[in-house]
């Protein structure tokens, strides 16, 4: 029987996978955490007062929990976690958040997932959790190697927009891509990443006729 962790619970690190010099995946013991794809947990080192929110990268049925972390230049926790090794204990709290899909939507909805950087994490969890999901991912990054987990998606459903690398599927920002490829107003649009991208995209999609009820956003800070 799975249960919510909610209170600070000790868990162990199983694996650290470095994707780029600054971005890495931390895999931890699940500890019976029940969550909905799209939710996040608080994670930190025991004995330290700082914990940070990280969207769950793994799927609802995976036997472990994964989070995708980018080291922040002036950050505290992202630097600490980058140095940990398998076996390290972490404090986990959660799950939290409402950036989730309803069962009816999963069955019938047509989804557009728009991410910047590590904002891809909840979408990775959606795709791992719900087989047969009708989705398109638009992932905005600077360089090709920042297409985190791109091999985990159907290539026909994944569009990598690179701003500083001409080898992506689209050379430019996700906002430019959407300006050139308008979205129909029935599409359920989920935006995740930095607030500038989300605010700009919100305006573009609204202008294209996507109703507010079809716009969902999770800002990364």
């Amino acid at each position: 029987m799975m249960s919510n962790v909610t209170n600070n619970t000790l868990t162990s690190v199983n694996q650290i996978k470095h994707l780029t010099p600054s971005t890495y995946i931390v895999r931890i013991e699940r500890r019976e955490l029940e969550f909905r794809a799209g939710q996040y947990i608080l994670l930190g080192l025991p004995g330290y007062k700082n914990k940070r929110e990280y969207s769950i990268y793994s799927g609802e049925m995976d036997p472990f929990i994964e989070v995708l972390i980018k080291e922040i230049q002036d950050g505290v926790v992202s630097k600490q976690l980058k140095e940990i090794r398998p076996g390290t204990k972490l404090v986990m709290d959660g799950p939290f958040g409402f950036f989730t899909l309803s069962p009816e939507q999963i069955e019938t909805g047509k989804f557009l997932f728009i991410a910047s950087g590590t904002g891809i994490a909840p979408f990775h969890s959606f795709v791992r959790s719900f087989a047969g999901l009708d989705y398109t991912i638009l992932h905005g990054v600077r360089y090709l190697d920042e297409g985190y987990g791109k091999d985990d998606y159907d290539p026909k459903r994944y569009i990598l927009c690179t701003t500083k690398d001409p080898e992506g599927n689209f050379h430019g920002r996700v906002t430019e891509y959407i300006k050139n490829h308008p979205v129909d107003n029935q599409t359920l649009c989920y935006l995740c990443g930095n607030s500038n991208m989300i605010h700009e995209m919100h305006d573009i999609l609204t202008e294209q006729g996507v109703p507010n009820k079809n716009l969902h956003a999770e800002v990364y800070f």
């Binding site: 989300i198 009820k213 800002v219």
Partner: peptide
């Protein structure tokens, strides 16, 4: 404002 509400992580819209 919708965008301020997003930034505040209020999880509701004006609508």
């Amino acid at each position: 404002d919708e965008k301020v509400l997003i930034k505040m992580n209020r999880n509701h819209t004006v609508e």
